[in-house]
């Protein structure tokens, strides 16, 4: 372990999380290297989002330990995790419909003027437009209310928001769910570009097995709150993954 510590970006050890009587995570351990893209697969309700939300500081685990750059940390808030370079695209996108595109992009990290610390709307608009242009997904205007945008446009905004702040550790919860083929291509290109920089760790939840094997270096399978399978993408296949899912499902039914 310690030999690889210099390339390790984030690691979670034996995470347990309960919501009342629901055991969402039952001793999950994952690890993402710098420059690596990890795919997280698994059924609905398996605990994938909960795992991600523990890494963003949104949920606190009941037990287990998170390490960032090899150092043990207790992520006690989203701001704390963000200060360590952890950014997330949440499954629900975390967008506020009644606010404009640029206010959403800068939510809780607003740019301010020196004068009284008032919001610098003009600069936020400029940077938001530039960040969206950079990804290449068209949005009518950064002043538009998010409520008026399409599902794919909303997702693009959430991705652009997470990416444009120089994240070191990028967590993506189903970033392609609402995307058309062209826009999904743009986001995949973006992930590739980030990966080629070699210093960003990406963990991505997805439901499309073939696409995930294609995009990610490594995949893990989460089922009923546990990691049931783990492999390099080149050493496994959609068939094998589906076989594991079926086997675990049968085992769970018998139990």
């Amino acid at each position: 372990m310690s030999g690889n510590a210099k390339t390790e970006a984030i690691r979670a050890e034996s995470i347990v999380k309960r919501f009342g009587s629901v055991l969402a995570l039952n001793g999950v351990s994952i690890r993402v290297e710098r420059g690596e893209t990890l795919g997280i697969l698994g059924d609905n309700g398996a605990g994938k989002s909960t795992l991600i939300k523990i890494l963003t500081g949104f949920h606190q685990p009941d037990s287990g330990q998170v390490f960032v750059n090899g150092t043990p940390v207790t992520l006690n808030s989203v701001d704390h995790a963000r200060s360590l370079g952890i950014e997330c695209v949440y499954q629900d996108l975390a967008l506020v419909n009644t606010l404009s595109v640029y206010h959403n992009m800068f939510l809780n990290r607003e740019l301010r003027k020196p004068f009284l610390g008032l919001l610098d709307h003009a600069e936020m608009r400029r940077q938001a437009a530039a960040a969206l242009d950079d990804i290449g997904v068209g949005v009518p205007s950064v002043r538009a209310e998010v409520a008026r945008l399409s599902g794919g446009q909303r997702q693009a905004i959430a991705v652009a928001r997470a990416v444009h702040t120089n994240a070191r550790i990028l967590l993506l919860d189903e970033p392609l769910a609402a995307m058309g083929a062209r826009e999904a291509g743009l986001i995949i290109d973006l992930i590739d570009r980030l990966r080629s920089r070699g210093d960003i760790a990406i963990a991505m939840i997805a439901h499309n097995y073939a696409q995930t094997l294609d995009i990610c270096d490594r995949v893990v399978l989460v089922q009923h709150g546990e990691i049931t399978f783990e492999s390099h993408s080149t050493e496994t296949s959609v068939e094998e993954l589906l076989e594991v899912v079926r086997r675990e499902y049968r085992a769970a039914r018998r139990a």
Binding site: T56, C88, D92, V96, H103, L107, N108, L118, L119, H121
Partner: peptide, 28 residues
């Protein structure tokens, strides 16, 4: 008016009412 339109407090107030979960996920 300045508080609502030109400060973080005002923007975070709008975000909280617009989508409380999203605001919390953004760390507000």
């Amino acid at each position: 008016h300045v508080l609502l339109r030109h400060t973080r407090w005002g923007l975070h107030t709008s975000a909280t009412g617009g989508n409380e979960l999203a605001a919390a996920e953004a760390g507000i």
